[in-house]
Amino acid sequence: MVRFKKRYIVLEVELPPKCKKEDRLLYFSLKNKIRQLHGEYGEAAVEKGLRVKYVNEQTNIAIISVARYAFKLVASTLPFVTKISLKTLYVGASFKHSLLFIKKHHEKTLRALRVSESSVDTQKT
């Protein structure tokens, strides 16, 4: 059996405040935009494989999966989504790799935070 190949897009999301069911909000806003831009054909082509895999409101990071052949259709609509502001961080071929990327990303941001904090501390002393 051959694998159904997917692409995993890691996004930085800015969710509206006091938001519930973030994954559904993300999914439907994306799908509505695809219908607007690529029409029914694009919607049908994307349907198989488009899932919101992971949303974290604390860290503002989400992962969506797309079928490989329809990647361009989804990637071209991402900048047009207005309800949630999105920023593509990484496109990976497996879920594991995108999680690894998130880990590295967090480490990087933490280190930057620490550096800034320590600089603040040194200024205080």
């Binding site: 079928a67 052949y69 259709l73």
Partner: peptide, 8 residues
């Protein structure tokens, strides 16, 4: 997997 050509 044989993928349909969706964009071209």
């Amino acid at each position: 997997m044989f993928e349909p050509n969706v964009t071209e």
